[in-house]
Simulated scan of single mutants.
Amino acid sequence: MTRLSTPPTRTAASGTAVSFALCGEIARPASLTVADLRTRYPQRRADVIFDCATSGPRHHIFEGPLLREVAVAAGPAFDARRRKDRSRFLLAVSGGDGHRTVLSWAEIDADFGDVPILLAATMDGRSLASAGSQLVVPSDRCGARYVSAISRVWIGACPEC
């Protein structure tokens, strides 16, 4: 069960800023905090239920920008007009605990999967400023790709096989 909407504007809670690196084959590498995610990008809300291998079904409400909007703003090194050029790009997301996952650009691209994946700035109404942003994949039934305390988002082309 997933519902996405634009949440009401709220002021981010203050606290220790935790940042993550936005890097790879992009024109504008950056270090982003939860406050940056809240103030620089439109906010979306995802009401999700997913299965956790250790604690069973989990229900949370996350808010934050779409991963696609943050990634596009970074200026990925592909020709945006060419679908095949975009479809060869990947996004690798790393968490503070060493958890990592990989997404294809096609998953988040409006011409392909158009999956509304978030870089969450809040969870259940609480700011993630001191814990770090969380990757939220609302379409996933299991929570394995929900990466907590994001430390790095790498964007780049799939290597030749």
Rank of each mutant, 00 (worst) to 15 (best):
R44V: 11
Q43G: 01
I26H: 01
A21Q: 15
R28W: 10
T33G: 03
I49T: 15
R40H: 10
Y41E: 03
F20K: 04
R44D: 09
L22I: 05
L22F: 06
T33D: 01
A30W: 00
T39V: 12
S31Q: 13
L32Y: 04
A35I: 10
R38C: 12
G24T: 06
V48G: 09
R45I: 08
C23E: 15
E25A: 13
L37Q: 01
A30N: 07
R40C: 10
L22Y: 07
D47N: 04
A21T: 13
P42C: 00
P29G: 05
G24C: 08
T33W: 04
T39D: 14
T33E: 04
P42H: 01
A46S: 08
S31D: 13
L32N: 02
L37E: 01
I49K: 14
L37V: 05
F50L: 09
A46T: 02
L32F: 03
R44N: 10
V48H: 07
Q43K: 02
Y41V: 03
R44Q: 15
Q43M: 04
A46N: 06
D36V: 00
R38E: 13
F20R: 00
P42D: 02
G24M: 02
A27E: 14
F20D: 00
R38M: 11
D36R: 03
L22C: 09
R45V: 09
A35C: 10
R45D: 07
A35V: 11
I26A: 09
L22H: 07
A30P: 04
A21H: 14
C23R: 12
P42I: 01
F50T: 04
A35Y: 11
P29S: 08
A35L: 12
I49C: 13
A27P: 05
L37A: 05
D36S: 01
A46C: 04
P42Y: 05
T39M: 10
A21D: 15
R40V: 03
I26C: 02
G24Q: 08
Q43W: 05
V48E: 10
D47W: 06
S31F: 07
D36L: 00
P42S: 06
P29Y: 02
S31T: 12
G24I: 04
G24V: 01
A35G: 08
P29A: 09
D36A: 03
A27C: 11
R44G: 06
E25N: 10
A30C: 08
Q43S: 05
R40D: 13
A35K: 12
L32S: 00
S31P: 04
A21M: 12
R28T: 13
R28S: 13
E25R: 09
A30I: 08
C23P: 08
I26S: 06
